[in-house]
Design a protein around this nucleic acid. Sequence first.
DNA 1: TCTACTGACGAACGGTGTTCGTGTCAAGTA
DNA 2: TACTTGACACGAACACCGTTCGTCAGTAGA
Lengths: 241, 241
Amino acid sequence: MTAADVEPPWWTPRKTATPRRALSREAIVATALDVLRAEGMDAVSMRRVAADLGTGPASLYAHVAGKDELLDLLYDEVVGAVPLFEPDPARWKEQVTQLWSDCRAVLAGAGDIARYSLGRVPMGPNALRISELTMSVLRSGGVPDQAVAWAVDVVGMFVTANAVEDAVTADLARKGRDPQEYYDQVHRYFAGLPADRFPITAMLVPQLMTGTGDERFRFGLELLVGGLAALATEPRPTAAP
Amino acid sequence: MTAADVEPPWWTPRKTATPRRALSREAIVATALDVLRAEGMDAVSMRRVAADLGTGPASLYAHVAGKDELLDLLYDEVVGAVPLFEPDPARWKEQVTQLWSDCRAVLAGAGDIARYSLGRVPMGPNALRISELTMSVLRSGGVPDQAVAWAVDVVGMFVTANAVEDAVTADLARKGRDPQEYYDQVHRYFAGLPADRFPITAMLVPQLMTGTGDERFRFGLELLVGGLAALATEPRPTAAP
DNA sequence: TCTACTGACGAACGGTGTTCGTGTCAAGTA
DNA sequence: TACTTGACACGAACACCGTTCGTCAGTAGA
């Protein structure tokens, strides 16, 4: 983490720079990340993280204000893995699609932490860099400023919600249940619905059950990017002050 | 509830039709709904619902498989308040916009239960009727079947995610914190960001902070509906391709 | 060397979802 | 009418959770 000097004001600063023992904010976040990847959000508890560090839960509170702050830190650590790049106005549509797809992939690959970030607006340094890049790319494509600002919000929601859905099925798989079994159950349920009251649902069962999560994500992303492109005026030169 | 005969197969059926005492699945869901509206999702616990019914938590498990099932039932009860209507092909865009706005309003008005439904696909009878109507309206507008099927998923996510965000701020207000104070804090944070590393974020602070939740929702909805309209093949009464 | 401070941590508080075993009462049967 | 049956009610307990308090120990500064 090279940008730790940009932090929301409500993140409690480390009390001292020279911890006497091995415990530290970084070690706590790293341990929590291990637990998250291995067993999902439900397993990330203060007690569990403390136990993995060989101590008791009370020890964590010297470095982290509480579980909420730990999850904030954890989330920002996760999205730090999203690859950034230089905006290219000629390829702005491909670039936003790439960026948001990467976000989804990174989030879905780190357990169901996306679920936590849904309500709040992520404002850690890494999340901010992603927002900045998103807005930079959209602006270079000629999307109006107000649309750029709101698009970050809207698409952030969409990406997060999609990652949650992905993580839920991944969680299903980890907990031993076969996701295919679940989908089969849903399929049978749809197919058995009374066709007089749910005619279209019954008719569209094949279409409803088609498509991987990724295909559905691409579909929604195209709707959104297409809508933004329709709002764009002339592409403007590279972002200048 | 007039359509209780359409239920997902994993909802545990009531054990008997003649409960000996006042406890029943309906009474449990109704009590949970009261708690949800009054104090939000966090307050909806087995113990709390049981206490409000004048009994202990163990008593609920004869009527409900567990907390997950209770929340499933609760969610479907909530979305039962969304008003339905007859599809009119000439006004399909206004109709979907209306329907999804109503969904958001109903969800946001019932605490933060939207948070729960994010991962799973809602399949209660009331949620199914909304899906059916959505697909009916989209199809009447000439949207291709595959796009119709996926749109239900995508827009469902969008609406739910939006309702969650609304509910979070509403929850903030209920818990005594002034939401304006929070927004001011965010405003100051954005305004204080180093302009050399976050030039666009700094530049767009006014646009980022503008707009009510409803305005932002409308913006995203227009992007999605516009994208769907662009996919429509049938001769459409309104705009031309 | 002494003092002040701060991180570590055992113990406990009040909460959660869920299960077990037992009690109790209403309906069905003889 | 008397008896049996079985579903519902529910107290108690289990295994967790986040968080706080008070104490202890060891280091940094005077």
